[in-house]
Amino acid sequence: MSAESDNSAEPKVKRFMYVNRKAPHGTVYALEVLEMVLISAMFEQDVHIAFLDDGVFQVKKGQNPAVLEMKDFSKTYRALEGYGIEKVFIEKESMEERGLSADDLIIPVEVIGREELGALMESMDVVLSA
């Protein structure tokens, strides 16, 4: 599916980044960002996802919000690759500050340094945050 109108010459491909800075479950943002990311996969854009600050907790293994009768959407992160979304980044410093390592994560992600992440953000056309 294309977001383009029928007669445009070149399909527009923009660099999108979804910025996740918030922990899951305490607020709805993580869940609804994920819904946004999955939709965006249908538009054949250059999609990036970044987890930083408390956002790193979104991809922690072993979440069980069912105990609170809340939705467990953490499994959905595993589906990202199937949607063609492979540019998934997690900030090294944010993980370290929170005692996490790549082994604690539910999906393979690219670990990126803070400065490098800042530069990557700078290279985006559209940055969506919540």
């Binding site: 910025v19 800075r21 918030k22 953000m121 700078e122 056309d125 940055v127 945050s129 919540a130």
Partner: peptide, 14 residues
């Protein structure tokens, strides 16, 4: 408004 036009991509820190 001018700043958003002049400075390129806009990122909100939320």
């Amino acid at each position: 408004v001018d700043l958003t036009a002049d400075k390129g991509t806009v990122q909100s820190w939320l």
